[in-house]
Amino acid sequence: MSDATDTTQMAHAADKAKIWPMYRAVVGLGFLCGFIIVGVYEGTKPIIQRNRIEMREQAIKDVLPGAVTTQAFMLNEQEQFVTVPSAQENGGLLFAGYDESDQLVGLAIEAQGMGYQDVVRLLYGYSFESETILGIRVLESRETPGLGDRIESDPVFLKNFGTLDVRLTSDGSSVANPIEFVKPGEKTDDWQIDGISGATITSRATATLLRESSTSWLPKVNAQKDAFLKGKRSP
C-alpha cells in the first residue's frame, strides 16, 4: 500500500521535474522572440512610415499635376474641414495640393468601391478652378492583370480625365451632371466616361465610385473652399 503511494509520489515528482524545463524553454524562447520582434519593429518603424508618406505624396502629385506641397485635411464632428499633420496615416482624409507659389492646385480625394474581383481603392484629383476631375490613380486593386488593370494604363480611358466635368448646380448643393458611364466611343458630353471594352466591369465600377464620391464630397468641399485656400498659410 505505502509502496504504491510512494511510486505515485515519485511519478509526480518526476513529472514536476519534467515540467520545469518545458516552462523554461517556452518562456525563454518567448522572451527571445519578443525581443527580436520589438527590436526590428522599432528599428524599421521610421523607415516604413517615411515610405508610406512618400508613396502617398507621389500619388497626390500624380493626380494633381503641378502640385509641389500637400496638406492633409479632415472633416471634424462639426462638419468643418480642419488641417491635420501629414504624418497621420488613417483613412478618410482629403489632401490639398499647392504649387510653387503656394496657390491651390486642387484636392486629392480617396474613393473605394467594389470592382470585378475585389475592392478597388483610388485617389482622384479635383480642381476648383475648372471644376473637373484631373486624374485618377489606383491605390489598391486585385483586378485581372492585363484586363481590369487597364484603368491605370489605357490611353483612351485616361483621356476621360482632365476634362471630366463635375460642375455644381448654381446653388452649390449638388453636382449638376453626375458622372455617367457610356460604351466605348459613345461619349458626347464632358461628364461621361468612356468605358474600356475588355474591362467593362472595372471601368464601370470606376465610374460608379467616382460618381458616388463626387456627389457626396464636392458640395461639402466647395462650401468650405476658403479652408483649403488658406490651409497653407494658417498653421
Partner: peptide, 23 residues
C-alpha cells in the same frame, strides 16, 4: 510550439524588412 514561435518571429521580422525596403 517552440518551433512555430521561432518561425513566426522571423516571418514578422521579414514582413517589416520588406515594408522598409519597398512598399
Amino acid at each position: 510550439v517552440s518551433f512555430i514561435m521561432i518561425i513566426a518571429t522571423f516571418v514578422t521580422v521579414v514582413d517589416y524588412l520588406i515594408q522598409a525596403i519597398s512598399l
